[in-house]
Design a protein around this nucleic acid. Structure first.
Lengths: 229, 229
DNA sequence: AAGTGGTCTAGACCACGTC
DNA sequence: ACGTGGTCTAGACCACTTC
């Protein structure tokens, strides 16, 4: 155990103890450095880690305060669907359903502005059974290669990750009833629950792509684990 | 813009450019320090930040490599339901439905082991309408105060965050059909989709509590935004 | 204006993992 | 065994923000 880990643990203990309750102002860096007999940099490292964990807040001149926790945060990882299936030891399958070039009118949400778009509908299979239906729009303006790429053997999901770096992502998770396409391709019944991931990615504020990923509710879930806050 | 930010941006540019493609081994810290005319520590800071973002991997002796991205990660924040509702400018309401002490037999998943448990069922309301149904089990062994606390005016959700620090959280997100309790209390119809958050928290490996939080699918979604990777 | 955290340096030494 | 990243130090100076 390195010094900064020891210091982190000790400070964490005092917070959990309520020795240092929510709102409490911690001693300043120099004082902690004296107490723990280390350099100021080592104290800073421990404190920075607690800032990242959301347990303390720091402001110049005002000092370091214990945060009053009002939420849980966890890191959500959404893997490429092919890896998700293969890592679980299953057989991955892919089927392109349609690929066309469209005008801006299919962009119902007005994300992309007045540009030509590529619209792809495809299905990801787990051991031959429908697993995820991918309904995707790509901005041809932002990614010109998307205009001619055929997506017959590589899914847009995977092609995009290799091709187009992104700088920001907006993800929405929700539960809904199966749509017409869901019923047809995911083989679920009307009113069956589906788990939907809506995702929109941009690069330097320019929208690149939008996807609606739907899954049969009884075959899909997202698990996240946060350890050792 | 500080030097470490400039360096981070420049390295990021080279990765996005494919100047440094996936698998590429970066120059070592000392060399980058010479190139950018800064101290080694400043280079380390930029690189650490890219490690956190999941864009590079570092190993002693082997060096620093550009990662082959296989997943999206985003930070999921699940706020206390009362704050979520109030921050949206709505009126929060709370209703305790039942609170009882049970033996280990109600712990169907065998999370808690052979201990006495507190079981609470309660409802969170948004502008008077059912919003979230909370079905919660608390280990009396781990949190003795839970045995006698009545939860009549404070929800277990909120009480626990103030009372019991946790060190690890396991969260499962899924879509399902409404259960009997969901239909009764969330006022949804049979087969209506519900969004379920299953959450289990522990402190130093000791299980503290388990909750099933259900929401009507048409009134709930989770949004996450990741900026400036 | 003054005090807090934030950035940077130059250097030493350590430890893990690959070669 | 040895070269890479990892940790730590001691110090200087900066910049934000509250007093």
């Amino acid at each position: 155990m390195h010094p900064y880990e020891t210091i982190r643990s000790e400070i964490l203990r005092r917070i959990n103890d309520q020795t240092w309750p929510a709102g409490y102002v911690l001693p300043q860096e120099e004082q902690l450095a004296v107490e723990f007999e280390v350099a100021r940099g080592t104290v800073r490292r421990a404190l920075s880690s607690l800032v990242d964990a959301g347990l303390i807040e720091r402001k110049r001149r005002a000092g370091t305060r214990v945060v009053d926790r009002k939420s849980h945060t966890s890191t959500l990882t959404i893997p490429i669907v092919r890896h998700e299936i293969e890592n679980a030891g299953h057989h991955y399958g892919y089927k392109l359903l349609s690929a066309r070039i469209c005008g801006p009118e299919i962009d119902e949400k007005g994300i992309f502005g007045d540009v030509m778009l590529r619209h792809i509908l495809c299905l990801h299979l787990n051991d031959g059974r429908p697993y995820q239906l991918e309904d995707r729009i790509i901005s041809i303006d932002a990614i010109p290669e998307a205009e001619t790429f055929d997506f017959k053997s590589i899914s847009p999901n995977e092609w995009l990750i290799a091709k187009a770096p992104y700088s920001s992502v907006r993800t929405i998770l929700r539960a809904d009833c199966a749509s017409g396409n869901d019923m047809k391709h995911l083989r679920v019944k009307a009113h069956d629950p589906v788990f939907i991931i809506d995702r929109q990615t941009s690069f330097n504020k320019v929208p690149l792509t939008y996807a609606r990923l739907s899954h049969s509710g009884d075959r899909y879930q997202i698990v996240t684990e946060t350890d050792e806050i």
